[in-house]
């Protein structure tokens, strides 16, 4: 099992009115290629910041430290890796080691398979100078939308309200796969079928407001996977939906991830829901990683008291009721 993304000492701070707020504190974890990993946490745990950092979607005002090392087994023609010399005097040792590693990995990859597999190692690191973020790229970083699909919590906000849904999906396919419009529309139609919209023919030319919340989220998922990403990130993608639709969307995500061999990063506040979908759980709190492990281990034998508290707070249909007596 190889790591798709190696996150090392990742810290993210936001500058807000009062000063700096630390959203992530020196997080290190591996996202294993092909796994379903869930990030669990309550509000303020940093789980969404982690998702945005991995997708490269953090706002420019965020201060990013540490690095994310990528290893993409490219299936399409990526540009060759270009390793830029590291000339920054302020970069720490970790950065220097990382700057040296891509060539080493390239050598291994080329030895394994000369022509078909072109391993890419991207690295992103940033530091601030007077509030501005400098993001340096050495090697190739993943491109959001092409290599990473992102599904947000609120599909009404992430879909363009004045564009038909097939065009929104086709646009992704056209931008990242270099298809012409007829090919892109054909792909959009195919994808709308794959996300199992009730009436794909009618839905194709619909505007987002004509669809229900669950249907919109299906469209958002279709757009997220339109370019065939290696990694699918679902950030609270089912939280705004009711229980029945939530279960349908989770089963859809499970199926799509399995069919396309995608890696899944499932961000959720609901440990029971995440446990049903993911193979590994990572529990976050106050911007730190509390524990990470196989789902069964975390659920049956949590090592940390916080994880146990989260599990105990879950009100399942089998939990002991809080209500003690019937009304007098």
């Amino acid at each position: 099992m190889s790591a798709l993304a190696e996150i090392r000492d990742l810290s993210v701070r936001y500058i807000s009115d009062g000063g700096e707020v630390s959203a992530l504190k020196r997080i290190s974890l591996d996202v294993v290629a092909g796994e379903r990993l869930a990030i669990i946490g309550e509000s303020g745990s940093g789980k969404s910041t982690l998702a945005l950092a991995i997708a490269g979607l953090l706002p420019g005002s965020a201060t990013i430290e540490g690095r994310i090392g990528w290893q993409f087994q490219a299936s399409r023609s990526f540009p060759p890796p270009s390793v830029l010399p590291d000339i920054s005097p302020t970069r720490g040792e970790i950065g220097s080691v990382a700057a040296g590693s891509p060539s080493a990995r390239s050598a291994i990859g080329e030895a394994g398979n000369d022509s078909l597999i072109s391993p890419l190692v991207g690295e992103m690191s940033g530091r601030t100078e007077g509030g501005a973020v400098e993001r340096r790229l050495s090697g190739a970083s993943p491109i959001p939308g092409r290599d990473i699909g992102f599904v947000f919590q609120d599909p009404s906000a992430s879909l363009d309200p004045v564009m038909t849904v097939d065009k929104q999906i086709a646009e992704v396919a056209r931008t990242h796969l270099g298809l012409d419009w007829p090919q892109a529309y054909a792909r959009a139609k195919h994808l709308l079928g794959r996300v199992r919209l009730p009436d794909p023919q009618a839905a194709m030319h619909a505007f987002p407001h004509q669809l229900s919340g669950g249907q919109k989220q299906r469209v958002a998922i279709a757009a997220a996977i339109a370019a065939g990403p290696k990694l699918l990130i679902a950030d609270e993608a089912t939280s705004a939906l009711d229980t029945i639709v939530q279960a349908e969307i989770v089963s859809l995500i499970r199926q799509l991830v399995a069919e396309d061999g995608m890696t899944l990063l499932f961000i959720s506040h609901d440990i029971a829901l995440a446990a049903e979908l993911a193979e590994r759980l990572a529990v976050f709190r106050h911007g730190g990683l509390v524990e990470i492990g196989a789902t069964e281990q975390i659920v049956t034998a949590p090592r940390q008291p916080y994880t146990r508290a989260l599990l105990d707070a879950h009100l399942g249909l089998d939990a002991a009721p809080l209500l003690r007596q019937a009304p007098a």
């Binding site: 939530q246 279960a247 609901d270 029971a272 446990a275 049903e276 049956t300 399942g316 089998d318």
Partner: peptide, 15 residues
């Protein structure tokens, strides 16, 4: 029945 079936539960994993 649909609502009950769709509710996530930990005891599917817990022995």
């Amino acid at each position: 029945k649909a609502l009950v079936a769709a509710a996530p539960r930990l005891n599917r994993i817990r022995p």
